[in-house]
Design a protein around this nucleic acid. Structure first.
Lengths: 349, 349
DNA sequence: CTGAAAGCGCTTACAG
DNA sequence: CTGAAAGCGCTTACAG
């Protein structure tokens, strides 16, 4: 690869000092028009563009933001990421993305390593979504890594507060959504409502299950642990959860699925057993991705405004990095999008 | 934020020169055991980790690989990315990801800007998937940017060869898959087979449509332009394409969809018009993502081994970066996964 | 408005 | 095996 030309060449070519070239490049200090013009001509002539590594080292700003998440192929994370990337790019930052593949008890890459890597690369800010922070009991080494990161750079964690870590926690979880969903099912006459998908030991799951139980109780409906089947967050997990529920032989007429992917898998599993939605079973997704409106039937779902939330996240981080005022508060309360997957309780129930 | 400690502190603390610290850090040059031990102790004591920016500047290796793609929320790109990221991480590289949001004629971020940014950040290698390179006629400025990148760093383009650009082109497209799909439909008695989704002016679409036409001809089936509806690559585009096809009022008994997302949308559109799959219409997806096996009905689809392809891409790039031997050739010929979305031609046809 | 100089935190010949 | 020195390509007080 050819050696790229540097600020020194541009300075020589235009007969000024490198300081002056730097000044026209950054445009923050006045430069005399004629010198400015000569420098700009040289820049154009050589198609010069400054080395961001050198610039970052000297200015202590890498103009890079780090994002660590477990699985970019999960629609929740990818839509979050798109918002973050887009706004970051508009602000002049590029994104270092780490996909940890974290799943509890799997052979994932270590999140701690990724966090250290972000520190080493001197990102100007770091966003961590998902992963061990969502565990009710994260590993000590993970917490230590988070703490170290928080003391080194602006850090935004997408999730619940963790004691002893001082950084910005942004929690998208809102309890009211689940209540609305259960109430809607209840209004259709459903009494035995299952909960499918999500993962044991994970905060989001625990909190949604808790909201579900609370909603049932407050509506005078029975809470039955046999109606809760936790697996994971993907279509295959919805398929498995629905299958397990049916195997248990408990009666139910409706189910909450933790998200669209799980709803898709559950749909498939019920269909395989000859059960129809919504005639036999009513289904609601607790978190809408972009696809559920195309399922058959179209799935009633909670819209948690993930994409707007992504914008909030990056805005808050940029505010911290740039020492700016807070300006935005955002309504991300979940909204129930009623579609075709719920119906009245079947007659024989 | 506190000032992070540097190699100088470690050198002072352990009573050696920074050269020696550098040597134990990189472990390529022999260092006496006692000094080595003292340095390592100091490193542990201060939890020291070298500044990757400074290291990159001095060593001319940023240990970063750039990936530019149009939409990470598209399952094709996200699964490709996951493979790339994982293998890159194993080799010690981190990934700078740019999501250009490129769609022909949209207000996307300029791909040229992203390419320049990658050059500025001195990535050790760059992978470009999708975007303007897939157009039959890319813009001149885009081609110029690609050319500049190719002359500056190791570049892998995922797509067809472009004249005048010397970099590694890796094309995943294989003609035989489409033929197999059409032949399978033909064997079920279908004669009027539609093509849904994809985008006009885009190479992949053009090549799949060409393969489709060629397959029809070679099987003695009629080619009818009215049976081809190009829109785009997402579920909503499949929905729209199927709707447009029905509006045209041409008769058909089967359809090829350009990918799983389009198949999902088409499925929904046909269902809305009271048409059943596979009883009324047989459907095949020309590119499998992870979800079609959960659709109702399960969709017969071509498996193009995208994830294995991702591994190939990063391996080739690393080979170039590290001047290594080529070792891997990979079978990525498409395989038809027969599921439940195709049936015999309805009797009245 | 401008240049010389020091510095950002590393690596890498070079001489020993 | 080891240290002093130059250098990577920028920025940023400092003095004028």
């Amino acid at each position: 690869m050819p050696k790229s030309i540097t600020i020194t060449e541009i300075a020589r070519e235009s007969g000024v000092s490198i300081s002056t070239v730097s000044r026209v490049l950054n445009g923050n200090v006045p430069v005399s028009p004629d010198k400015k013009e000569r420098v700009e001509a040289a820049i154009r002539k050589y198609n010069y563009s400054p080395n961001a590594l050198a610039k970052g080292l000297a200015s202590r700003q890498s103009m890079t933001i780090g994002v660590i998440l477990p699985d970019i192929s999960n629609p929740y994370f990818s839509s979050l990421f798109c918002e973050i990337e887009s706004a970051a790019h508009d602000a002049g930052y590029s994104i270092l993305l780490c996909n940890t593949l974290y799943r509890s008890g799997s052979d994932a890459h270590l999140e701690e390593d990724y966090i250290q890597m972000m520190i080493d690369k001197h990102v100007d800010g770091l966003i961590i979504a998902g992963g061990q922070q969502d565990l009710i009991h994260p590993a000590k080494t993970y917490l230590a890594a988070i703490k170290r990161a928080a003391s080194t750079l602006p850090l935004v964690m997408i999730g619940e507060n963790i004691d002893g870590i001082s950084c910005l926690f942004l929690d998208r979880e809102r309890a009211d959504g689940i209540y609305d969903a259960v109430k809607y099912l209840s209004s259709l006459g459903h009494k035995r409502i299952a909960f499918l998908g999500g993962e044991d030991g994970v905060k989001i799951t625990a909190s949604r299950v808790a909201s579900y139980k609370k909603a049932l109780s407050s509506l005078g409906l029975p809470v039955d642990e046999n109606l809760i089947v936790l697996t994971n967050y993907y279509a295959q997990d919805g398929y498995r959860a629905a299958g397990l529920l049916l195997e248990r032989g408990v009666s139910f007429t409706a189910a909450l699925c933790i998200n669209d992917s799980v709803a898709l898998g559950s749909l498939r599993a019920f269909h395989d057993k000859g059960l129809h939605i919504p005639e036999d079973i009513s289904l609601i997704s607790c978190e809408l991705f972009h696809s559920s409106e195309f399922f058959t039937p179209r799935i009633t779902a909670l819209d948690r405004c993930s994409s707007r939330f992504g914008r909030l996240v990056i805005q808050k981080l940029l505010n911290v990095i740039q020492n700016q005022e807070e300006n935005d508060s955002l309504d991300i309360s979940p909204k129930l999008i009623v579609r075709a997957s719920c119906g009245p309780v079947p007659e024989n129930n």
